[in-house]
Measured scan of single mutants.
Amino acid sequence: VTTYKLVINGKTLKGETTTKAVDAETSEKAFKQYANDNGVDGVWTYDDATKTFTVTEMV
């Protein structure tokens, strides 16, 4: 189990959250659901070296 981080650069929501998951794909699903639940829709990137997802909304 690995800890993954999500950085949110939204128009109205900014911040970070973490989750523990067995792999990046599992954490990505959880993070995308979290973003969707909070009305964040944007461009996703992933940095495997830091286990960090970033979602950026276009303004």
Rank of each mutant, 00 (worst) to 15 (best):
G39I: 03
D48R: 06
A24I: 12
G39V: 03
Q33Y: 04
T17C: 15
V55Y: 02
D37H: 07
F31K: 00
Y4G: 04
F31G: 00
Y34Q: 02
T26R: 06
A49F: 10
V55D: 01
V40L: 09
D37M: 11
A24T: 10
G15P: 04
K14C: 14
L13M: 12
W44Q: 00
E16A: 09
N9Q: 11
W44F: 03
T3Y: 07
T3C: 13
Y34D: 02
E25A: 14
T26Y: 06
E25Y: 11
W44L: 02
D48L: 05
Y4A: 04
V43T: 10
A24D: 05
T45F: 09
K11Y: 10
A21I: 03
G39Y: 05
T2Q: 13
V43M: 09
D48G: 06
A30R: 13
G10Y: 06
K14H: 10
A30L: 15
T19K: 07
V1Q: 13
V1Y: 14
G10A: 09
A21R: 03
T56V: 07
G10S: 12
A21Q: 07
A21E: 05
T45R: 06
S27A: 15
V59Q: 12
N38L: 15
K32S: 03
V43E: 10
V43C: 09
A49Q: 11
K5V: 10
L6I: 03
E25W: 11
G15W: 15
K20C: 14
T26H: 10
K5Y: 15
L13A: 08
W44G: 00
D37P: 01
V22M: 12
D48N: 08
W44A: 01
F31N: 01
V7L: 09
V55N: 02
T56L: 05
T50G: 03
K51Y: 08
Y4T: 04
V1F: 14
T12Y: 14
E25C: 13
E16H: 10
Y46N: 00
F31A: 01
K29V: 09
K5W: 12
T17N: 05
K51F: 09
T26G: 06
K32H: 09
T17K: 12
Q33H: 06
Q33N: 07
T56N: 08
A24G: 04
M58R: 11
V40C: 04
V1H: 10
T2E: 12
I8E: 02
V1N: 10
V40M: 05
V22N: 09
V43P: 02
G42L: 03
T17R: 13
N36A: 15
M58P: 10
T18R: 07
E57M: 07
G10K: 04
T45D: 09
G39Q: 08
A49S: 11
S27H: 02
D37L: 11
D23V: 02
K5D: 03
F31R: 00
V1D: 11
F31V: 02
T12R: 11
V7F: 06
A30V: 15
G15I: 15
K29Y: 07
V55W: 01
Y46M: 00
T54S: 05
K14E: 05
E16W: 14
T45S: 12
N36Y: 15
T18F: 14
T50Q: 05
V22F: 12
D41C: 12
F31S: 01
A35N: 03
V1E: 14
T52V: 05
N38F: 14
L6H: 02
K5T: 13
Y46E: 00
Y34E: 01
K32E: 03
V7Y: 07
V22T: 12
V1L: 15
D41V: 14
V22W: 11
T12M: 10
T19G: 05
T17S: 08
K5A: 04
Q33G: 05
V59G: 14
T54H: 06
Y46L: 01
V1M: 15
G42Q: 00
V7A: 03
T52I: 05
W44N: 00
N38A: 12
N9P: 02
A21S: 09
D48H: 09
T26E: 13
L13H: 11
Y34M: 05
N9K: 10
V59Y: 12
D41F: 15
T19L: 15
L13S: 07
E57D: 08
K11N: 10
G15E: 12
V40H: 04
T19M: 15
T17V: 15
G15M: 15
F53V: 01
I8V: 08
T56S: 08
Y4N: 03
Q33T: 08
T45L: 06
A24V: 13
K32P: 00
K20Q: 14
Y46P: 00
N9V: 13
T17I: 15
D47M: 03
A21Y: 04
K5S: 06
T3M: 10
D41T: 14
A30S: 08
T45N: 08
Q33L: 09
A24M: 14
T17A: 10
T54V: 07
K20I: 14
D37I: 10
E25D: 09
E16G: 09
V59H: 12
S27G: 12
V59I: 12
K29M: 09
G15A: 13
V43L: 10
E57G: 04
